[in-house]
């Protein structure tokens, strides 16, 4: 098992005729993902990697009975592309773009919520269920099938953590990049219940960072509802107040709200072990894995 994504999940790629879209559609296919087509308006006369290209998501959905879409679409066109996918009734939409205007995401998030769509991103490498499927652009060679579920705001830190796990012989059930923006689709507390339900996931690793309150809310959820053990890591203890640290969402407010120390305190209060270094994660996970 895994969450959200498995080998049967039917996937379309929005922006499949573009350089990135075409390149990663190919890599997803090679990984074994069930990619069934793509969408680029005005290019329905083309085929990419043997896959049909449609003008609209609706046409693609009707022809292929797809469940999920991944968007390789530039930030300024992302709002329309996300809304189109949600409107077509897709259950899973992943948007990887970095730099989508904030008001566009506030709107898209709410529209996706109202329509029961699992929106992942933006500013994320996507989601992977190792050995089954990937809906993203992560370098899949570092992943290994197994029982650690992972949720991360940062792409590169999830690569680090996964690499540490895999080289220690520990595999992953599903790894979800929720993205580094202040407003994103699903966040920790939306995914934790899915991991709790997943019989294969034995332990969940949350990789958070400074800014916002997502980790604190996740801590409350874990304390109240989770039987599956949860481990956390928080980046940004050295970040000064008031500076946006690369990710749009990674900012400690003047006054200290959203600081790493505060988040760690709340996580520990909820009984969650917080790894000091990313290299400590495998040892912490081993405690809970048969």
């Amino acid at each position: 098992m895994s969450i959200i994504l498995d080998k049967d999940t039917k996937i379309i790629v929005q922006g499949i005729t573009g350089r990135e879209g075409s390149f990663h559609a190919d890599l997803m296919l090679k990984y074994g993902a069930n990619v069934v087509g793509g969408v680029t308006p005005g290019k329905s006369d083309q085929k990419v990697h043997g896959l049909p290209v449609f003008d609209t998501v609706k046409e693609a959905a009707e022809a292929t009975d797809t469940d999920a879409s991944i968007l390789f679409v530039p930030p300024r066109f992302s709002r329309d592309a996300i809304l189109e996918a949600v409107d077509a009734g897709l259950e899973i939409v992943v948007t990887v773009a970095e730099g989508i205007p904030f008001h566009d995401m506030v709107y898209c998030r709410e529209y996706a919520n109202k329509n029961g769509c699992t929106l992942i991103g933006p500013n994320t490498p996507g989601i992977i269920s190792p050995g089954k499927s990937k809906l993203g652009f992560m370098a899949d060679s570092i992943y290994k099938e197994g029982s650690v579920g992972m949720i991360s705001r940062s792409a590169t830190l999830s690569y680090e953590a996964v690499n540490n796990l895999t080289t220690s012989g520990i595999g992953q059930s599903t790894v979800v990049g929720i993205g580094g923006d202040p407003v994103q689709g699903v966040t920790f507390k939306d995914l934790l219940p899915m991991f709790e339900e997943d019989p294969e996931t034995e332990v969940v690793v949350m990789i958070g960072e400074i800014g916002g309150t997502d980790e604190e809310e996740a801590a409350l959820y874990v304390k109240k509802h989770m039987k599956t053990p949860v481990i956390a890591f928080i980046a940004g203890e050295a970040a000064p107040e008031g500076k946006r640290m690369g990710h749009a969402g990674a900012i400690v407010s003047p006054g200290g709200e959203g600081s790493a120390d505060y988040k760690k305190e709340k996580l520990e209060e909820a009984g969650i072990e917080v790894a000091r270094k990313l290299t400590d994660i495998p040892a912490l996970c081993k405690k809970y894995i048969d």
């Binding site: 705001r153 999830s158 980046a235």
Partner: peptide, 13 residues
């Protein structure tokens, strides 16, 4: 990546 950079900063500090 931003996350990797922030982590490096933490470690330096």
């Amino acid at each position: 990546g931003a996350g990797l950079a922030i982590s490096t900063l933490d470690s330096l500090q």
